[in-house]
Write a protein that binds this DNA or RNA. Structure first.
Length: 427
RNA sequence: GCGGUUAUGGUGAAGUGGUUAACACACCGGAUUGUGGUUCCGGCAUGCGUGGGUUCGAUCCCCAUUAACCGCCCCA
């Protein structure tokens, strides 16, 4: 029986790989622009890193983790997100001790969550994320958001909606939490089972519930904004002011609660088009307690993560075409046995001189070889046969206008390079 | 994890309980003994997701299983 790809995974086929390269390149360029450095961490980590880092009450830890025991009995997990690993590495390598603070870092790589697959939701998916560790300056909150926005804009995405909220500091959160419990507790029986469980564990998440969205108590629920203490309120005001000055539009949503436990203060999402619906393209927020939670010194942090898969979907929905892969400079058409023997040698010479070149390997007839040249979008075809070998020259055909000329083998690469320069201005 | 829909060649997609599984595109070849994107002609599924069952006989009926898609949940 044929072996199939595991559920929730997919292959990026050659036709699609160029779009991925383009996206990754854009991400790296934008990070360079904002002075974020790449860091690479393992794809699996100790399971308890995520239990402590992401939070035991989250869906991710409770039901979505790919965990396994290795041969040494270690309890490991395929990373479901990037922040916990980055904070672990930051603490483990004592990056907090480096003179250069904050540490501004980014990653691009696969994440794993055991979920029911759907468009834009895979078991292995790819996140591009950035984290700034070591600064509690509100301008870095704005910077991280600006980085993501810049990235999307460079790729040509238009319909983006930035949603903003503040969860406040631990003191504010605790006060709000108490208020929420007091608000919902008397009538909690009218809510869904999930919400009943959420009441004591994480009442904030009740606000996020779609099932009970229309319950009258939702509209009158205490808003976190009203429970922010002086310091938290000021901090949020500064972040908003900087975004205003930058000209980055946002929408305030006091019910924006993120799925990970470590967030406090600023949280945000960018919503965008997807197949048939609007979904979250990017999510992030501040996590000031996480570094110390994972054994480091009290250190503020903030970051975001976005999904390349969802970005691709959004680009498709908006009709944005990422330009195609580079085409071939020339293709050798060989006719007859002598020419077929000569072709690989000539081909190698062309390649050594820096030309993108190829030939036929399917013993096709002349017509078939030309068709292949056409499929590869070759700009020139170099034809060789008995006559050409005799005269030490080739027939070079310009595929765009159909003209052709005789060119001596000795001057073939110079000829092609010159012609190509006039075509695309490079080389 | 729950509910719904689906599964036929490289691709899109018809179809029937019974010797040959439409059609289109793509591909290969020929018309044009050495030239692409147009046209005409020809070729191209020992096989109908996988496993089992019913039957004289199943791609078509039944069961299971796997996967994809959509909705819920949740999120990137």
């Amino acid at each position: 029986m044929q072996i199939q790809i595991p559920r929730g995974t997919y292959d990026v086929l050659p036709v699609d790989a160029f779009a991925w390269q383009k996206i990754e390149k854009t991400a790296r360029e934008v990070c360079a622009l904002f002075n974020y450095k790449e860091m690479r961490t393992p794809i699996f980590e100790s399971t308890n890193l995520f239990q402590r880092g992401v939070g035991d009450t989250t869906d991710i830890v409770q039901k979505e983790m790919y965990n396994f025991k290795d041969r040494g009995g270690r309890d490991l997990t395929l990373r479901p997100e990037g922040t916990a690993s980055f904070v672990r590495a930051y603490v483990e390598h004592k990056l907090f001790g480096l003179p250069s603070q904050p540490q501004k870092l980014y990653y691009i790589g696969p994440m794993f969550r055991y979920e029911r697959p759907q468009a834009g939701r895979m078991r292995q998916f790819t996140q591009f994320g950035a984290e700034a560790l070591g600064s509690a300056d509100p301008s870095i909150d704005a910077e991280v958001i600006a980085l993501a926005m810049t990235f999307y804009q460079k790729l040509g995405l238009k319909s983006l909606n930035l949603v903003l909220n503040s969860l406040g500091d631990p003191e504010s959160r605790a006060a709000h939490r108490d208020a929420l419990i007091a608000h919902f507790k008397p009538s909690i029986g009218e809510f869904c089972e999930d919400c009943q469980n959420r009441l004591e564990k994480n009442p904030l998440r009740i606000l996020d519930c779609k099932e009970d969205h229309d319950h009258p108590l939702m509209a009158t629920a205490p808003s976190i904004i009203d429970y922010l203490n002086e310091e938290s309120r000021e901090y949020f005001a500064k972040v908003k002011a900087i975004l205003d000055e930058m000209g980055i539009a946002y929408e305030l949503d006091p019910t924006l609660v993120r799925g990970l436990d470590y967030y406090n203060h600023t949280t945000f999402e960018i919503m965008g088009a997807s197949k048939g619906a609007i979904t979250t393209l990017m999510g992030g927020g501040r996590y000031n307690g996480l570094v110390s939670e994972l054994g480091g010194p009290e250190t503020p942090g903030i970051g975001f993560a976005l999904s390349i898969e969802r970005l691709l979907l959004a680009l498709e929905v908006e009709g944005v075409q990422l330009s195609a892969a580079p085409s071939l400079d020339c293709f050798i058409v060989a006719i007859g046995e002598k020419a077929e023997n000569k072709a690989p040698v000539l081909l190698n010479q062309l390649r050594q001189s820096g030309l993108y070149a190829d030939k036929d390997y399917m013993e096709r007839k002349v017509k078939g070889q030309f068709k292949q040249a056409d499929r590869d979008h070759a700009k020139f075809v170099v034809v060789i046969g008995d006559e050409e070998l005799e005269a030490q020259k080739a027939v070079v055909k310009n595929m765009a206008d159909g003209t052709q000329e005789d060119v001596a083998f000795a001057s073939l690469t110079d000829y092609l390079k010159e012609k190509l320069t006039t075509i695309d201005g490079v080389k």
